[in-house]
Design a protein around this nucleic acid. Structure first.
Length: 420
RNA sequence: GCGAGCAUAGCUCAGUUGGCAGAGCAUCAGAUUGUGGCUCUGAGGGUCACGGGUUCGAGCCCCGUUGCUCGCCCCA
């Protein structure tokens, strides 16, 4: 058996890479319109960063990390912890008090691949660090909503919740545990384990029986401080006024430990079982937790592959890629040298051109020109070279025009003019 | 980590009860000497995932392995 690509990775071939670049360009532009600036961080970090940032008990850290060199380093499984590490390390708070950063990078998680889930995948994400203003939440959420509408994505559910701070959650979790203990024998094995390790996660169970039990369970919202509730109400009002359709989901909790206060998630029915396009929330304790000054922050991450899956399903109209302007059909050595000189001049001016390198027949060269979508074909034959008179064939409508010239430089100049 | 399904040409897939390995698309070439698309003709391309077993004979039946896909968990 030949060597194959690692499980859960993809080759992005030319026909797809232009699509991907289109999406990336669009996302960059979007982020920049909101005045987010790009940040790039290393592909791998000290393993400790993720353990402390994301949480030792999370699934990602406990079983999905690509770690190496005696566990010293790990390929980044998510981007928030690295961004915050960089923020602290480079003293970005001194550059301006609010840092609005975006990224487009590959992440790595050792999971079983399935529809919309890969071991190497790309995320577009934004992080706003340094303000607890509810309008930052609203702006960031509306950026996400704008992203969806820019790509013409409907058919989604925008879920928002607030989960408070660790302190606020503590009393709730006690009560939740007590409540769930009554139903201990009805809970799944996973949930019983979570009862000790991470009871919050039980809230987003998908088992009907457990959902039923949770209907009468304590509600986290009731345990939150008035300020947290006010923040949430303000976010909701602001988000509504910006035209975002959302629904509140008190059971929405997320798999990373750093989240506090506002959390949100967008689900699409055009995806498989892995139906989240993007998700995020506030993480007001993370900067401090990683050794910086206490600094509020919020962010979200969007999966590019999932985004593209949805676009594919919706027959998203990707723009045509730039095609060849001039194709030179050649015959013999003199013709080929003449052509390549002209092509050199055309390329100086940024005009895309191509010729035959396989010594194929005229007919085959014409077929090739047609196949690659060349707009114009010029045959450089013996007669043409003798007369210095060439026909330019328009491949769209089969019309031909002719140019006379004094030599290759002159012809190149004339073709450049026609090109404009 | 667990469960299910699938594996035949570059791609999508047929292949009957176990009896010579197939089609469409794609690729390449040709259809009176130097002109694309449409049409027609032809060609190349296979360790039937791999290894074993049953059988006179296996793409087909049995066992194992690997890979892929979908799902669980979790996430984007």
């Amino acid at each position: 058996m030949n060597i194959q690509r690692p499980k859960g990775t993809i080759d992005i071939l030319p026909k797809d890479s232009s699509k991907r670049r289109h999406i990336e360009d669009k996302l960059r532009k979007l982020a920049e319109i909101y005045n987010y600036k790009e940040i790039r961080t290393p592909t791998f970090e000290k393993t400790e960063l993720f353990k402390r940032g994301i949480g030792e008990e999370t699934d990602v850290v406990s079983k999905e990390m690509y770690s190496f060199r005696d566990d010293e380093f790990t390929l980044k499984p998510e981007m928030t912890a690295p961004v915050i590490r960089s923020y602290i390390e480079n003293n970005l708070q001194n550059e301006s008090q609010l840092q609005k950063l975006y990224y487009l990078a590959n992440m790595y998680r050792h999971e079983r691949p399935q529809a919309g889930r890969f071991r190497e995948f790309s995320q577009f994400g934004v992080e706003a660090i340094g303000s607890s203003d509810y309008l930052v939440d609203a702006e960031l959420i509306s950026l996400g909503a704008k992203m969806l509408s820019d790509f013409g994505i409907g058919n989604i559910i925008f879920k928002i919740n607030t989960i408070g701070s660790t302190e606020e959650r503590a009393r709730f979790l006690d009560d939740l545990k007590k409540y769930l203990m009554q139903y201990r024998d009805k809970l799944s094995g996973d949930s019983i384990k979570r009862l000790e390790l991470n009871p919050l996660r039980i809230l987003d169970t998908k088992l009907d029986e457990e959902i039923e039990i949770l209907k009468n369970s304590p509600v986290l919202y009731d345990y939150l401080n008035p300020e947290t509730k006010a923040h949430f109400d303000n976010v909701l009002n602001a988000v509504s006024s910006l035209g975002v359709n959302y629904e509140i989901d008190y059971r929405l909790v997320r798999g990373f430990d750093y989240y506090t206060s506002t959390t949100f998630e967008v689900l699409s029915s055009d995806l498989g079982a892995q139906n989240a396009i993007f998700g995020g929330g506030r993480y007001d304790n993370l900067v401090e937790q990683l050794g910086g000054k206490s600094t509020p922050a919020i962010g979200f991450a969007c999966g590019l592959e999932r985004l593209m899956l949805i676009l594919e399903k919706n027959n998203y109209p990707y723009p045509d890629t730039d095609s060849v302007e001039y194709y030179f059909v050649t015959m013999g050595e003199e013709s080929k040298i003449f052509s390549i000189k002209i092509m050199n001049s055309l390329r100086e001016k940024g005009i895309i051109c191509e010729t035959d390198f396989l010594n194929r027949s005229i007919k085959s060269q014409m077929k090739e020109a047609n196949k690659i979508g060349a707009r114009k074909v010029i045959v450089i034959g013996e007669e043409e070279l003798k007369e210095m008179k060439f026909r330019i064939r328009n491949m769209k409508n089969s019309s031909e025009s002719s140019v006379e010239c004094t030599g290759s430089d002159d012809l190149a100049e004339k073709l450049i003019k026609i090109g404009k």
